[in-house]
Lab assay of single mutants.
Amino acid sequence: YKIYPYDSLIVTNSISVKLPKDVDRTRLERHLSPEEFQEVFGMSIEEFDRLALWKRNDLKKKALLF
């Protein structure tokens, strides 16, 4: 996945969300650098992957990456 800054990946309720063209809309968190991922989620990507799907989705919603 290509890395993008968190600010360019957050999704708000506005209709005209302009995400970069090559971003996987269903896995926005994968486009964060490991350092920024840790900062946003408070855990590593590996720890995040071990969580239940509902928990990952809940965290993504709170981080505006859903």
Rank of each mutant, 00 (worst) to 15 (best):
L9R: 00
E35I: 12
Y1N: 09
K62Q: 11
F41T: 00
A52C: 12
S16P: 12
F41E: 00
I3N: 04
R56M: 06
W54D: 12
K62D: 08
G42K: 14
E46L: 12
R50K: 14
S14Q: 13
E39M: 15
R30H: 04
K61Q: 09
E39D: 12
R25W: 08
N13Q: 10
F48W: 07
N57L: 12
S16H: 14
E46P: 08
K60E: 01
F41I: 04
K21F: 10
R27S: 09
I15C: 15
K61T: 08
T12Q: 10
Q38M: 14
Q38T: 10
R56G: 03
T12P: 09
F41S: 00
F37K: 00
Q38D: 11
R30T: 03
F37G: 00
K61M: 10
H31G: 01
K21Q: 14
F66V: 08
L59E: 03
S8Y: 14
F66S: 08
K62I: 09
S14H: 13
V17D: 15
K55E: 14
D22V: 04
L53N: 08
S33C: 07
A52W: 07
Y1G: 07
P34T: 14
I3H: 07
L9A: 00
S14M: 12
S16C: 15
D22N: 07
F48P: 00
D7I: 15
K61V: 09
L32A: 00
F41Q: 00
L28T: 03
D49R: 05
Y4E: 02
W54A: 11
M43H: 03
L51F: 06
F41V: 02
Y6A: 02
R27D: 03
K62N: 09
L65K: 01
S44T: 14
L59W: 03
K21V: 13
I15Q: 15
L9Y: 00
F48A: 00
L65H: 01
D58R: 11
P20C: 04
T26Y: 13
F37P: 00
R30E: 02
K60A: 02
R56I: 05
M43V: 04
R56A: 06
D24A: 04
F66L: 10
L53V: 11
S8K: 13
E46S: 12
L53K: 09
P5G: 05
A52H: 11
L59P: 00
T26Q: 13
K60L: 05
S33H: 08
L9V: 02
K2H: 10
T12E: 09
K2V: 12
V11I: 14
L65P: 01
P34H: 11
L53E: 12
V11F: 09
L19Y: 15
V11E: 06
K62M: 10
P34G: 09
V11Y: 08
M43P: 00
D7A: 15
L64Y: 11
G42Q: 13
M43K: 03
I10H: 04
L32T: 00
F66I: 08
E46Q: 12
L19R: 05
L59Y: 05
L64I: 04
R25C: 11
L53A: 10
T12C: 12
E39N: 13
R25S: 10
S14A: 12
K60M: 03
L65R: 02
Y6E: 01
T12A: 11
K62A: 12
L51Y: 05
I10T: 07
F48K: 00
M43C: 07
P34I: 14
S14R: 10
R25L: 12
F66Q: 07
L9M: 04
K21T: 13
R50A: 13
E46M: 12
K62V: 09
S8H: 10
S14G: 14
L51P: 00
D22G: 08
R50H: 10
F37W: 03
H31V: 01
Y1V: 14
S33T: 06
H31E: 01
K18E: 15
L32V: 03
D49N: 10
G42A: 11
K2R: 08
L65I: 05
D49P: 01
E46G: 12
N13P: 11
D58G: 09
N13W: 05
I45T: 07
N57V: 13
K18C: 15
S44C: 12
D24F: 05
D49A: 07
L59A: 06
L64T: 04
I15E: 15
D24Y: 06
K61W: 07
Y6D: 01
P20T: 04
F66D: 07
R30D: 02
N13Y: 05
I10C: 07
H31S: 03
I10V: 10
K55H: 11
D22P: 03
K2W: 05
I3M: 06
K2L: 09
K61I: 10
W54F: 09
G42V: 06
L19Q: 06
R30C: 06
Q38A: 12
R50W: 06
I3L: 06
Y6S: 01
Q38H: 14
F37T: 02
E35N: 10
L53G: 09
R56E: 01
V40E: 02
K60C: 02
A63G: 04
E36A: 08
K60R: 07
F37M: 07
S8E: 14
R50P: 03
R27P: 01
E35F: 11
K18I: 12
E35H: 11
F66C: 11
V11M: 11
M43L: 07
F48N: 00
L59I: 05
V17C: 15
K61C: 09
L51I: 06
L28I: 06
V11H: 08
D7H: 15
A52K: 09
P5H: 04
V40N: 06
E46H: 11
S14N: 14
A52S: 14
E29G: 00
I10Q: 07
E29I: 01
E35T: 11
D58L: 13
D7W: 15
I15R: 12
D49C: 07
P5I: 03
I3P: 07
T26N: 14
Y6Q: 01
D7T: 15
V23N: 01
E36L: 03
E36D: 12
D7F: 14
V40D: 00
L64G: 11
E47Q: 12
L64S: 10
Y4Q: 02
N13S: 13
P34N: 10
A52G: 09
P34V: 15
D22E: 08
F37V: 02
P34S: 12
S8C: 13
L53C: 15
E29V: 01
N57C: 09
F37N: 00
S14T: 11
D58V: 12
K2I: 12
H31K: 01
V17G: 15
K62S: 09
R56K: 10
W54M: 08
E47F: 09
L64Q: 12
D49K: 06
L19E: 05
Y6P: 01
L51S: 04
P5W: 03
F66P: 04
E39S: 13
Y6C: 02
S8V: 14
I45V: 09
D7K: 15
L51A: 04
P34C: 09
L28V: 03
S16T: 12
L59F: 05
E35K: 14
A63F: 07
S33Y: 03
R56T: 03
L19M: 08
D24S: 05
F48V: 00
D24I: 07
